[in-house]
């Protein structure tokens, strides 16, 4: 990450340009197939010999259970809602993402801070505070945004796993039932993602296409990053063994 930088007020004890790896974020609303594509990308990269770490939203050791419990309570205020996710992200950033980048891994992030920015904006109508909160986040080398329109998304979610409380933004009471609420909430998120796509220069990928076409599109965006400034991670046997 040669020109690496933080979004805002960064981690004071870390210079991000020391990081050798590449940070790639895959964004998009619920139900666009992010995790399937990340699995396929990991396979593709590892076959080529690249070290890969995948990291997913809310999957930190510290916070995953806490967030689940908080969601069951359904009583989150706007601030703790965003701060819980920020804590989860910070835990993964400092204990997983940065160490991996330092060792030259490619980090595939299933969702990144843009998810939190969109969700907080839909809830508060204000963009600044949550952006300040996530100021310590590294700017990724590449953000691929799997874009889908609301009509296609609704059909796809109904066909697959169905709609749930949080994905429908039911805490916002946007509609009278799950369907109406899902549609309104996800439309607002898509609208905000579209705005951020311009502001933060996302690579937009049409997620209505077939999985193969989407995967090809993702690979063609990632390929140019691989040729520059990246070394394969060293095997343990390559290291100098220090006398005890």
């Amino acid at each position: 990450m040669v020109d690496a930088q933080y979004f805002g007020d960064g981690l004071k004890n870390l210079n991000p340009s020391d990081l050798k790896g590449k940070l790639i974020a895959i964004e998009g609303t619920d139900g666009v197939g992010r995790s399937t594509h990340i699995e396929m990308l990991q396979e593709w990269l590892e076959v080529q010999g690249y070290g890969v770490l995948t990291t997913g939203w809310t999957r930190s050791n510290l916070m995953s259970k806490t967030i689940e419990m908080a969601k069951e309570g359904n009583i989150l205020d706007r601030w703790s809602f965003s701060l819980l996710y920020a804590t989860d992200f910070a835990d993964r950033l400092e204990l997983q993402i940065i160490p991996a980048l330092r060792s030259g891994f490619i980090v595939l992030a299933d969702r990144y801070i843009y998810t939190a920015l969109a969700r907080d904006f839909v809830r508060s109508g204000n963009r600044q505070w949550v952006r300040d909160v996530f100021g310590f986040a590294l700017v990724p080398d590449l953000v691929c945004y799997l874009r889908i329109d609301i009509e296609t998304l609704v059909l796809r979610v109904i066909e697959t796993k169905g709609m749930n409380y949080w994905e429908s933004g039911m805490d916002l009471r946007l509609g009278s039932d799950l369907y109406d609420s899902f549609k309104k909430y996800q439309s607002l998120l898509i609208e905000e993602f579209d705005k951020m796509a311009e502001e933060f220069h996302f690579e937009v990928i049409d997620a209505r296409k077939s999985p193969d076409e989407i995967q090809d599109a993702l690979r063609s965006k990632i390929q140019p990053l691989l040729t520059t400034n990246l070394r394969s991670p060293e095997l343990p046997s390559d290291r100098h063994i220090q006398p005890a």
Partner: peptide
Amino acid sequence: TPTTFSLLHAT
């Protein structure tokens, strides 16, 4: 970490 310590207390 200092950041998670700080964010948990803010939460």
